[in-house]
Design a protein around this nucleic acid. Structure first.
Length: 834
RNA sequence: GCGGGCGUGGCGAAACGGCAUACGCGGCAGGUUUAGGUCCUGUUGGUGGCGACACCGUGGGGGUUCGAAUCCCCCCGCCCGCACCA
């Protein structure tokens, strides 16, 4: 074949044309089905991509995430592992319900239709899923086990109801977990969240705060640092002490939590959270009206206003005094909204000299400021700047003269001894609010009986299936739409048989996603959430791929669930995901894609234009997986070109094969050594880059090999050389991680059947990796002055001599004295001269 | 405010403390082509020089080192998380 003919062919290769052909073959071959044979000798690898929400077709963000996960999964397959790479859908949730309301249809119709759309798109996208394991969380066969788990949590007192201030989204008309409130706004719809006092279901994640924190250590180096950091900050452990203060006209002491018990002698007033029940309890009767007026005012503020640090401190005096347990001093009790009702004990001792918030409050209301730690900084009462640093204790009785940290220990010991306080730990983490006043979720399997209270639905009556409600109004009104299904709601109490009502709330969808990775191991298992034997075989997940937006929410909840399941004896490990990769976002023109900006890029359109392979390759080649990709800077056409070049190499080899002369040529030696070296270096490099998740660099190495092979064909030994065939075969297998269609075409052109998915990852020949000469850089005073080609095994003495004699070195040195020579054979000599 | 991360060509990005800018885009030049496109080849950090070369160069400043994009300190800029958590 002439170069012109070959170019002509390349022009004819359009990666889009081969997609249907291979989809059909893959469907038939099912090459990525995990082996269910427990005796399968291959090492196992469990890779999970965060499952999608079926809110329409796949989008650009999915295209990146699944390209990364798929490359890693295919790598493990080709390495000979028995890989489990499943897919499912996070199928409950508000968007389905809102879409149903808009279209006057049922959430299930919308959801299942979108699932089919996405499944078809996944197949087109050539993802290497084991399709026999797909799941959808809205299937009763799935949420059955949400309910079962809920009841196990309930038995262990890890699921409980309480009154509390909750985040209420006025648009979605439902409560939200703390984790779902982003900067005071609803994570889903962006509306400003307001606080409401409601009786709701919670999961007691705070009981696991310490373990969630401690076990994060074993994820170090395996999860992105920033995710671990965010989780640590979210859990927010602080060490300090509890101190009991007596308050006039009250028998029980009021306990405060403080991280600075050393400043106890500097407490000049006492503050309770205005909207906590405690405020009314300690308030003098004649001040009650004022307190209530104040609380009313505060409640009108949105969380965003309330949390603004710019806002002036406000509060009311409650007409009572608290007694400082260490010195008997009477200090006024105030109520203020800068003290939170649900952190610590909802009350604080205020030390204005050493806490900025207390100081701001003291200055607003003319309260005393007393310095008890001498930090050498100016008087806070004068400057308005609290001094929080280290220093020496003053005005503090028995702890005078101690340094801050010693004083903390000393005063804590004194308090403990007198029974007035104790060392304590507090967490920023709150319990997980799991009930939602919406329809499209898992019904909470509890029956409320007037005489028996909260009664679990018996296991053998699970699942509690959602009532149909087809054709009924699902518009949110603050009460779950399930309440309207009277036939469904009204039941007899399983315990006493009397008239009772089902709980009408549904579970937060994050419950669904907290354990789905275990369900994948046995999607049809009917005797429990998962088959323990199967989970033992596959789990924990070796590699988890998904967006950083779940750094706290889903990833913290999953870790919590795993620990509870471990405590229940259902799992043998305590962390669900051994390794985690967060891919970046796909943005456009420097901004996240959004309808309002009109900068959305449609994945389907991109695939129509460039083909799946080019889009996958563009995603992979753009940057390291964790970086954002700005689509405006991307050039998928360059990948189309690269795919054509790669394909043409295989085509040239095939053509040379067909040429009778070619066969003779191949009969002999292994072929061109230079190209063979390049091929084996590429195998070695790509293997290492993939192992390090530097997928973009792996693609760059493939591009280099394509260029080298092209040269060998056009200006070297020609397409019939066995080294060219070897290069072409290696390219096909390596490329299959990223561009499966083109890889299949090449593999087929090279005469292989039935699929490159059945090929083996090539091994680099060490003999071909060894280099005959290496380039040695010779520096003089830190600057490169010459380069030498030397054998890799050169000795230090030989290299030193060669370097000193190198022309560039001689020229630079001139009359200078050589002071020192550092020799690092075979790559570097550094000469210090003066 | 607190915590963390990142600043490398015109652009996306490479670089165990050891040749800065691999690979790709874009640009320039050439070949193929009736032309354009496709395809192929070469070239492409800045300044100076015909040139071999020289000097400068990884946000800015300082330090450690024979040697720093890489390690340390300060500053500037951008991004992310938390946000009255006592």
């Amino acid at each position: 074949m002439t170069a012109a003919e070959s170019a002509e062919l390349a022009q004819r290769y359009d990666p889009r044309d081969v997609q249907e052909k291979w989809q059909a073959r893959w469907a038939e071959l099912d090459p990525f089905r995990a082996s269910e044979d427990p005796a399968d000798p291959r090492g196992r690898f469990y890779l999970v991509d965060m499952f999608p929400y079926p809110s329409g077709d796949l989008h650009m963000g999915h295209a990146e995430a699944y390209a990364i996960g798929d490359a890693l999964a295919r790598y493990e397959f080709l390495r000979g592992r028995n890989v489990l790479h499943p897919i499912g859908w996070d199928a409950f949730g508000l968007p389905a319900e809102n879409a149903a309301i808009r279209n006057n249809s049922h959430p299930a119709d919308w959801t299942y239709a979108n699932i089919e759309t996405q499944a078809a798109s996944f197949r087109r996208y050539a993802t290497s899923f084991d399709w026999s394991r797909r799941l959808a969380t809205c299937d009763p066969s799935y949420y059955h086990w949400n309910q079962w788990l809920f009841l196990r949590f309930f038995e262990r007192a890890l699921a409980y109801r309480k009154d509390g201030y909750v985040n209420w989204c006025p648009v979605d008309q439902t409560v939200l977990a703390n984790e779902q409130v982003i900067a005071g706004r609803c994570e889903r719809c962006g509306a400003e969240v307001v606080r409401r006092m409601l009786n709701q279901w919670y999961f007691k994640i705070t009981e696991y705060a310490d373990r969630l924190l401690a076990d994060a250590a074993q994820l170090e180096g395996c999860w992105p640092d920033r995710v671990l950091l965010m989780q640590r900050n979210w859990i927010g452990r602080s060490e300090g002490a509890e101190v009991d203060f007596m308050v006039e006209s009250r028998d029980e002491p009021v306990t405060v939590f403080t991280t600075r018990p050393d400043t106890l002698y500097g407490a000049t007033f006492f503050v309770v959270a205005a909207d906590s029940p405690l405020a009314e309890q300690v308030c003098a009767p004649d001040r009650l009206a004022e307190l209530r007026g104040y609380v009313e005012q505060v409640r009108k503020l949105t969380d965003i206003e309330r949390q603004s640090t710019e806002r002036d401190k406000t509060g009311v005096f409650l007409g009572r005094y608290a007694v400082n347990p260490v010195n008997g001093e009477r200090i006024p009790v105030w109520a203020a909204d800068y003290v939170l009702p649900d952190y610590g004990t909802g009350a604080i001792m205020a030390v204005p000299a050493h806490d900025q918030r207390d100081l701001d409050f003291a200055r607003a209301y003319g309260l005393d400021v007393r310095v008890v730690v001498d930090t050498g900084q100016p008087d806070p009462a004068q400057t308005g700047v609290a001094t929080a640093g280290d220093g020496t204790l003053v005005n503090s009785g028995p702890i005078n003269g101690l340094a801050k940290s010693d004083a903390i220990a000393a005063i804590t010991a004194i308090l403990a001894e007198k029974g007035l306080g104790r060392a304590a730990v507090s967490y920023r983490l709150r319990d997980w609010l799991v009930s939602r006043q919406r329809f499209w979720g898992t019904p909470i399997p509890i029956i409320h009986c007037p005489s028996c209270g909260q009664v679990p639905v018996p296991d053998d009556q699970l699942p509690v299936v959602l009532p149909d409600l087809r054709g009924q109004d699902l518009v949110p009104r603050g009460v779950s739409p399930l309440a309207a299904a009277e036939d469904w709601v009204n039941v007899s109490c399983p315990r006493c048989g009397g008239a009772a009502k089902r709980d009408t709330d549904t579970m937060d969808t994050f419950v669904d996603s907290s354990w789905y990775m275990f369900r994948y191991c046995s999607v049809d298992y009917a005797d429990g959430p998962f088959d323990p034997a199967e989970v033992r075989r596959w789990a924990p997940v070796d590699m988890y791929v998904g967006g950083v937006e779940h750094a706290i929410l889903h990833l913290l909840y999953s870790r919590f669930f795993t620990k509870v399941l471990y405590d229940m004896g259902l799992l043998a490990f305590t962390e669900p995901f051994t390794r985690l990769i967060n891919q970046g976002q796909v943005i456009n023109g420097g901004k996240a894609m959004s309808k309002s900006l009109g900068n959305g890029v449609d994945l389907g359109e991109q695939i129509e234009r460039f083909g799946v392979d080019a889009i996958r390759l563009t995603m992979i080649f753009a940057s390291p997986p964790e970086d954002d990709i700005d689509w405006a800077d991307m050039h998928p056409e360059a990948m189309v070109k690269f795919l054509g070049r790669t394909w043409r190499i295989a085509a040239d080899v095939a053509a040379a094969d067909a040429d009778p002369g070619g066969a003779e040529n191949r009969a002999g030696a292994p072929g061109d050594t230079e190209l063979r070296r390049a091929t084996h270096r590429t195998i070695d490099e790509v293997t290492r880059q993939v192992e390090a998740y530097h997928l973009n660099v792996a693609v760059a190495r493939l591009m280099e090999l394509v260029s080298a092979t092209r040269k060998a064909i056009d200006a070297g030994p020609g397409a019939a050389d066995p080294a060219v065939r070897e290069a072409a075969e290696v390219l096909a297998v390596l490329l299959s991680l990223f561009a499966p269609y083109t890889a299949e075409e090449c593999w087929e052109l090279l005469g292989h059947k039935p699929s490159v998915a059945r090929a083996a990852w090539p091994a680099a020949d060490p003999a071909l990796l060894a280099r005959e000469t290496v380039t040695c850089v010779v520096q003089v005073n830190g600057k490169v002055r010459d380069k030498l080609d030397v054998p890799p095994a050169i000795t230090e003495a030989e290299l030193r001599e060669l370097a000193l004699a190198a022309p560039g070195v001689v020229r630079t040195l001139g009359s200078q004295q050589v002071r020192r020579v550092i020799v690092r054979p075979p790559k570097l000599v550094s000469i210090v001269a003066a």
